[in-house]
Amino acid sequence: MTYCVGMVLDRGLVLMSDTRTNSGVDNISVFRKMFRWGGGDRTIALMTAGNLATTQAVVSRLEERTKAPADRQNSLLELPTMFQVAAEMGRLLRETVKETQTENGADGKGRFTASLILAGQIKGMEPRLFLIYPEGNFIEASFDTPFFQIGETKYGRPILIRGYDRTMSFEDAVKLLMVSFDSTLKANLSVGMPLDLLVLERDTFEPLHDRRIESTNPYFEQISNSWGAALRNAFHSLPDYSFYQKQDG
């Protein structure tokens, strides 16, 4: 399983992903799920969830296109808008899923799907965030939907909904994501450390912050412990329920 989040702020984009993949409780590995490409006029980042063979095939093909002269017209570094980048990634994902399922016959149906979060900015344009589905279609983040999640989304989502503010600082956004990931890690063993973090500031085409967060990271440990204590304190501060006091309703 996977957990990845991409978030739009007034200042730019913040991305975080876990790195755990598993084919059962006795077969757990670490694989990167966040990737980045850049040039002088753009920065593009991708996070992946789903079948590992499918996502690795997509990323490998994207890497080849940035290097092979014959594929320059479809390279992430040549396409003129982020919308066209999203469309090309969606087409490539759809083709890869279809090819893999065809090769594996009826047994492959539904097993080789994947989804992507695409983020980035091209000079002179706005930072943009997209969620790309296995079928190749996609949606873009907006004021109504300012963040996307893929993978194991349900445990960390309530934290994001309650804590997100488009005007928040990058530092507060990272703190919020760490709480969301900590909640997910506590609830689902198929999501695991280390975490990859990427902060892309508006109109700056090199990452403001690019870091891998290990399980021994002291700040993450402090966030986890402090959040647990804060929840317990909040719970105990709620009004007590009584079996003997008449309840309204």
Rank of each mutant, 00 (worst) to 15 (best):
Pro207Thr: 02
Pro127Glu: 12
Leu79Thr: 13
Arg11Leu: 09
Tyr133His: 14
Arg42His: 11
Lys109Ile: 15
Asp210Gly: 02
Glu135Met: 09
Gly249Ile: 13
Gly163Leu: 10
Leu231Ala: 13
Glu126Trp: 04
Leu79Gln: 04
Ser169Trp: 03
Gly120Tyr: 00
Glu126Gly: 11
Gly110Lys: 07
Phe130Tyr: 15
Phe31His: 13
Thr100Ile: 12
Gly90Thr: 02
Arg94Tyr: 10
His209Arg: 14
Val191Ile: 12
Phe138Glu: 05
Asp210Phe: 02
Glu152Asp: 13
Leu208Asp: 04
Arg94Glu: 10
Arg157Val: 03
Val25Asp: 08
Phe143Gln: 14
Pro239Met: 06
Gly24Val: 12
Pro127Gly: 03
Leu62Met: 14
Leu189Gly: 14
Thr145Gln: 14
Gly12Arg: 03
Thr21Asp: 02
Leu93Pro: 03
Gly124Arg: 07
Glu64Cys: 04
Ala114Ile: 03
Val25Leu: 14
Met193His: 06
Trp37Ile: 12
Glu201Pro: 03
Tyr133Ser: 05
Gly39Val: 06
Leu177Lys: 05
Ser180Ile: 10
Pro239Phe: 09
Gln73Tyr: 03
Gln84Asp: 10
Leu13Val: 05
Leu62His: 01
Arg128Gln: 14
Asp240Thr: 11
Val191Asn: 03
Ser242Arg: 11
Gln84Met: 13
Arg162Ile: 01
Arg72Ser: 15
Arg111Thr: 09
Ser226Met: 12
Val85Cys: 09
Ala173Thr: 09
Gly12Asp: 06
Gln101Met: 12
Glu99Gly: 02
Ala229Leu: 14
Met82Leu: 14
Lys154His: 14
Glu88Val: 06
Asp203Thr: 02
Asp41Gln: 11
Val97Gln: 01
Asn51Met: 04
Leu195Tyr: 00
Gly108Ile: 07
Gly249Lys: 14
Ala173Pro: 01
Leu9Ile: 09
Glu206Arg: 02
Leu131Val: 06
Thr54Lys: 06
Leu238Thr: 10
Asn233Leu: 05
Leu198Cys: 02
Leu52Tyr: 01
Thr43Val: 14
His209Val: 08
Gly120Asn: 03
Glu221Pro: 05
Asp210Pro: 06
Arg232Glu: 15
Pro218Tyr: 02
Gly38Tyr: 10
Glu135Asp: 08
Phe220Asn: 04
Met193Ile: 05
Ala68Arg: 11
Val30Arg: 04
Thr102Gly: 06
Met125Val: 04
Leu176Trp: 05
